[in-house]
Amino acid sequence: MKSKAWTERVMQGVFFIAACTSVLAVALICIFLFANGIPAMKEIGFIRFLTGTQWKPNNNIYGILPMIVGSIYVTAGAVIVGVPIGILTAVFMAMYCPRKLYRPLKAATELLAGIPSVVYGFFGLVVLVPWIRSLGRWLKELGVVRSPGNGNSILTASLLLGMMILPTIIGVTESAIRSVPAQYYEGALALGATRERSIFRVIMPAAKSGVIAGIVLGVGRAIGETMAVIMIAGNQPRMPQSLLKGVRTLTANIVMEMGYAAELHREALIATGVVLFVFILIINFSVALLNRRTERE
């Protein structure tokens, strides 16, 4: 009997240690990123690093404002493209979808989430980039824009990222809609509201915080996306000028130059990662807060 109690104890300890791995991993990630990134920020100067508009590693000038603005632009673009379509699709899935169609369509949205980002990027490269290039030429002929751009642009990245955040938005919004009590909908119908009015005036407001959590999650995905963006955004480290011009995001900055960077340049790239990481932490924190609010309601 005694040896049995002993194994119980040991295994409980093993389980406990395993459970601590995630805490350890987060701690290590924070320590290693910050310890390698913060000194570079200090050396360059926090303000100059964050607000400098020039990124010229060869001249020892490291300002990542163009990349911060670039990340914000493509993320905003992705939200503009992806959120309306995602929410409408979620409404369809939750309220309109014929029962027979539901399973294949649900599988399709899961598939959309499963496609690797390089495949998305490749699709963007061979399909979207040529489209946007001809769109640019056409707009130039019409005299709307001065330079047509070469197709690698903010617009291209926004469209592709919009596609990529669709499954996140659809999944979270659909479950938020489904968690609204059926009486709300039935009550609205009974009062004579049309189906659409009941959905958009009664159900959607009730599902609001879930929908917002979905959007914020989508923002997190868009801002952290790397490979797809790098293949189609042009990656010029300068302040973005127009929708049809190239842009470099924080993520792209790291991947583009990490291969050959050394010394301060390398540390500046890690510091770029720190900035990205802080953005992500803020986003995660807001999602956790939103979810807590939903639970309380």
Binding site: L217, G220, G224, T251, V255, G273, I280
Partner: peptide, 9 residues
């Protein structure tokens, strides 16, 4: 937190 961290990080 871990599940929200992007792969580049």
């Amino acid at each position: 937190t871990l599940s929200g961290i992007p792969s580049i990080v």
